[in-house]
């Protein structure tokens, strides 16, 4: 067991190094940073919402969009670079099992996604904090109740976003272990992200049974196969406290994320075991 963990760690380490040296990662990170920083100058277009909310929404949007693109494209690329360049041949001829290889790739990719989330969320937190100081001072002078943000809530949001990107990476790895081409894995992975964002529609529909048993069965299966990615988007509630977060909600979302990561990685490992390289 210890040897197995060690081997996964070596694979993760090299995967991480490979990913952070890619221009693609740097490019998306720069775009994300630019989006968060641009919120400061764009805050005049806050459409009547609170300024902190506008800044936070723009930051959440950048995290969601660029994080999703990174999770889909980079994860597939990290997997297919090993297969297409045949480095997997060298590695899998060693006492390294295929599940260890796949899990090593996942943890390497997930670590990179963690760096991405922490950098963007850290920057967002800094921007929110700087504006909060000015807004609180102005509100006190005006005798109004100031809007504030929660650093603890931001930390929880970071964890949930990292988990969400982990679910996406696990789905993409499961798809990659089946797919023959990088393009297929990326396209289907992107569709899975969209489906995950819309999964709540299927969940709602399940609650209203129709006359067709087949339709009901399809909805039931799809609402369980596809994770509800919307459940991770509770940044407003966590960071700005706009709507209270029900007790245990974060834990439930956290456990759900872990469940889907485990499930998709298990499926991926089972498929990859039979793949001919």
């Amino acid at each position: 067991m210890q040897d197995s963990l060690r081997r996964m760690l070596w694979i993760s380490r090299v995967t991480f190094l490979e990913a952070v040296r890619q221009r693609f990662f740097a490019f998306l990170l720069v775009l994300g940073v630019a989006m968060v920083l641009s919120s400061v100058s764009l805050r005049v277009f806050d459409f009547g919402h609170g300024e902190l909310k506008f800044i936070a929404d723009l930051g959440f949007g950048g995290l969601f969009f660029f994080g999703s693109v990174l999770a889909v494209v980079m994860t597939a690329q990290l997997f297919f670079s090993e297969i297409d360049n045949k480095t997997a041949l060298t590695l899998l001829a060693k006492p390294l099992s295929r599940p260890e290889f796949l899990l090593g790739k996942f943890f390497g990719a997930w670590a990179v996604l963690g760096v991405f989330v922490v950098v963007l969320a850290g920057l967002l937190g800094a921007v929110l904090w700087a504006r909060e100081i000015e807004l609180v001072a102005a509100a006190e002078q005006a005798g109004k109740i100031p809007t504030t943000f929660s650093a603890g809530g931001l930390a929880q949001f970071v964890l949930l976003q990292w988990l969400r990107l982990g679910v996406v990476a696990a789905i993409v790895l499961a798809l990659s272990s089946l797919a023959r081409t990088f393009l297929f894995a990326v396209v289907v992975g992107a569709l899975a992200v969209v489906a995950g964002q819309l999964q709540w529609i299927a969940q709602d529909a399940v609650l209203k049974p129709s006359d067709s048993a087949a339709y009901d069965a399809f909805l039931w299966v799809s609402s369980r196969l596809i994770p509800n990615l919307q459940q991770f988007n509770i940044g407003d509630a966590l960071v700005l406290g706009a709507a209270g977060v029900p007790a245990g909600a974060v834990t439930t979302v956290f456990l759900s994320g872990l469940f889907y990561i485990t499930a998709y990685l298990t499926v991926g490992a089972l498929i990859f075991r039979r793949r001919e390289i």
Partner: peptide, 12 residues
């Protein structure tokens, strides 16, 4: 094992 036309991670 040494595979045919080996390719390794270039950054290492």
């Amino acid at each position: 094992f040494l595979p045919e036309a080996p390719y390794f991670h270039k950054f290492l």
